[in-house]
Amino acid sequence: MNSSQLQLPSYLEQSDAVRSRFTELKERESVLTAKNLSKVFTSPQGKKIVALDNVNLEVKRREFLSIIGPSGCGKSTLMRILAGLETVTDGVAQLDGKTIEGPGAERGMVFQGYTLFPWLTVKKNVMFGLKMKGVGGVTAEQEALQWIELVGLSKFAESYPHQLSGGMKQRVAIARALATKPRVLFMDEPFGALDAQTRAQMQHYLLQIWKNVDVTIVFITHDLDEAVYLSDRILVLEANPGKVQEHIEVPVPRPRTPEQFLHPAFLATKNHIEHLIHPPAEDLYDDLPMLKMTKLGDEVE
């Protein structure tokens, strides 16, 4: 709310560097496309619930796209369709021009709940995808160790998941998903369960990984700061039914640093999304019908 009192530029204003970056990005080939995606669920009572209505999407190679929106907007459903874990009612989703028909290693996924295999060590977890592909033991092990080193957990290669902290678990999950060299990495609120400090650290790690690995990232979050800080573009969905509200090009220049949280372009973008998701409502800050129950003169504010 405070930011609205500052004089902010429009989120549509882009510096030259940012504009040229977007021009370059738009020229790249599309990795992921969704055309007229619709998803209708039938509730147990037989009621039809439209989760997604005519969603269109195009993700370029090595782009970082965030999906944001109020709860119930279908962002998880959209991601699960793209990952192949959910079927579509209508429309088509494609990876590199091929229709997505089920889950596969070329579309890795990181879940909020870590989903590491508790019976496997960190190393064996990271080797899992390679083993499924039929990569032999020694090769798989060496590749896995490289990925573990990349996320800075070499010391924990032989540990079991329950011995790790939440942030470490999620780093293992990222390493595991990347080990099969996916074209796209889907991340469904991956840092949602972490404390603020670990979360900031993880965001920093993720940007580093993304910079150094040939992968496109699609990222769901509730956290506006996180979305603006990480993304090239942000897809804002509205709820009931789930529809695309706006594609936002984030005007914050790269490389990103935590200091940019106070960058005017950052604040302008964040402010704009805030208004999209939570339209200013009259009754949001209504006073409660309180009676004074303290002694006179015992004021706190």
Binding site: G102, M109, K133
Partner: peptide, 11 residues
Amino acid sequence: SLLEAAQTLGA
């Protein structure tokens, strides 16, 4: 979710 994770790893 373990099954889904494994599927996205190509199982």
